[in-house]
Design a protein around this nucleic acid. Structure first.
Lengths: 338, 338
DNA sequence: AATGCCTGTTAAATCGATTTATTGTAAAGA
DNA sequence: TCTTTACAATAAATCGATTTAACAGGCATT
């Protein structure tokens, strides 16, 4: 029993496929097709469970009902959670998701964009790596709906959804200062991406405002955790005078905790801690680690809302929309007063 | 500048589109098309960067170069990691991935299978929920390559990749017994899935072989963590005589740790712990939690290898293949001798 | 009676590729 | 000279839908 096509239906009912198509697409009234015929077709279609071939449909209409989602790394819990929520929201609105991980690799990302384009995805949700400005611009120029998230591209005017990175780190750093910490380091991945720069700036601003000395350590990202932990360990060993460390991402934070465990440092007596992104590991560490929690649901909701908006309006008028969301600062034992 | 189609190319070069198609699909020699013409076409195609519309291609050929991947929940670190690796391997072999989360929801899964089918995916990788036997069988009957993983369906003969669940829990339980623990509980999600049943059985076998009394607590899964932690807390409070707990999945394990933290229990003095699945949270807990680590890379590799095999051979002969992989038992402080 | 206007339906074009069947030539063989 | 054969390339059918343009019949208008 192979799949039926619209022609099979048409033949079986002795009606033209045009009529079937009109009825199935809810244009029966508009096309004034007889009630009795509509019912007859409807009934038969239900009976045999006919579903139009969406490839053919996409080919003809140019729409695919698919959204392309590009995250940095789907195995990172932050992106996994976001992807999950976006997937849900998308399904509820009749869209499917094709996703992939960019690894922050520009050329891989270019390939992926081409693939999405080739597959006629209706819209793009992207956490963009550096150096991808041109490709994004060209997407937009060709009228494709694009929403960036987690970060944006300063020279490209697109819709994007972000959190208030600068204020988040500023605020959390100030908390450390108020608790009496004086030698506060910021450990993060080396990156020019907007969210990382903003986080760093928030830290620097707070340190400056407090008349302290900034200590920044940038780590080169690597798949291999050892190569992240190594530099962190070296850094901590060299700077014995530190009394607090602020980790700029959940990944650095997790690796940092492992290092601290290995070195046998006491938290917060030897070293106070704060990490960006909240996450089971931080809650369950002893003492639990203070962390900046991103409003994951709100991010996913905003992203989808903005994208659906663009998909549903011809959107010639709206130029671009940026949404900046607040974070929650969860204060825990790791940053208790000195 | 809209996209070029094969007709545009053909017109521009004054050649028929058939010829273009033959050349682009590497059938120039077979079709004895003149060298000089082949070069001319090749050059022009490269120049304008023409890429065939893959929708049209799929419509005609029935192939899509897309693999459908259905995990239980992409935000679960185990599935996220697997998905990530599968994605990588698939890309390297020219396949893209469409993924989605089943939530172990049978009717959602049915919908998703239909959607994949409708999109003409070339192959399926599925962590199947219960009750989906018929749909999987019908996929297979229609000649679709299907590989299950993490669990299998007893009454359906498919290829699948699993770990040795029974031995893993048996072995780890025995470890607890050898360390002198006498009242060992097994806390897990209520489920009839093969992997969960096998894990439970491994525990029971070990307990029986040691002449101890099994204590099993099944938790009903819920998205809301509170509703998982609640029953665990109740259970632990009721069974004060327990000296060790074995958590059947990473999710139960994480929730269990939170409960233990909340109750202020000392590990391993009040309670020894082991969890299925290894994971940062377990490594960083104090004391670090002993855990059964699944060989994630090997699983992903096996899944992809089996699937590619099925995709590349007409595979009339091979009936089905099942791969069972070994786990690693990482012993840590949480299960030190009594 | 010719014209226009509904009404209900459909034939045919289209989307952009692949694949089958066919054509036209030139050289080789009978 | 006439038929084969090999070679090069193409016209047309096909995949399964949507959409445009057309058509036939009935009624009202002028």
């Amino acid at each position: 029993m192979k799949k039926l096509s619209i022609v099979d239906i048409a033949n079986h009912l002795n009606v033209s496929k045009t009529t079937i198509s009109f009825i199935l697409n809810g244009r029966a009234q508009e096309k004034r097709i007889g009630k009795e015929l509509v019912e007859r077709v409807q009934k038969f279609v239900d009976e045999v469970g006919y579903k139009p071939n969406s490839l053919a449909k996409s080919l003809r209409t140019g729409k695919s009902n698919i959204i392309g989602l590009m995250v940095e790394d789907i195995s990172n819990p932050f992106f996994a959670a976001i992807a999950r929520l976006i997937e849900d929201r998308a399904y509820k609105n009749g869209y499917k998701i094709i996703y992939c991980s960019t690894d922050n690799d520009t050329s891989k990302t270019k390939d992926l964009i081409n693939m999405f384009r080739d597959r006629h995805v209706d819209g793009y949700i992207i956490a963009p790596p550096e150096g991808i400005e041109e490709d994004i611009s060209s997407l937009i120029k060709d009228g494709m709906p694009v929403v960036l998230f987690d970060r944006h591209l300063p020279n490209v005017s697109t819709d994007y959804v972000e959190i208030d990175n600068l204020f988040s780190t500023y605020n959390a750093t100030m908390h450390l200062v108020q608790q009496g910490y004086k030698n506060i380091a910021f450990v993060t991945f080396a990156s020019h991406q907007t969210q990382m720069q903003a986080r760093l700036q928030g830290y620097k601003d707070a340190i400056k405002a407090s008349g302290l000395r900034p200590v920044v350590q940038e780590i080169v990202f690597d798949q291999n955790e050892e190569l992240i932990m190594g530099p962190i360990a070296t850094f901590l060993k060299k700077n014995k005078n530190l009394d607090a460390v602020f980790f700029g991402t959940n990944h650095v934070g997790t690796c940092g905790l492992k290092v601290i465990n290995n070195l046998g440092l006491k938290v917060p007596d030897d070293l106070a801690l704060i990490s960006f992104d909240d996450y089971d590991v931080f809650k369950l560490f002893s003492p639990p680690v203070s962390a900046i929690a991103q409003p994951i649901e709100a991010i996913a909701d905003s992203v989808i809302t903005v994208l659906l908006n663009k998909l549903n309006t011809s959107s010639q008028h709206i130029s671009s929309q940026s949404i900046v969301l607040k974070t929650d600062f969860n204060i825990r034992g790791s940053s208790k007063a000195k």
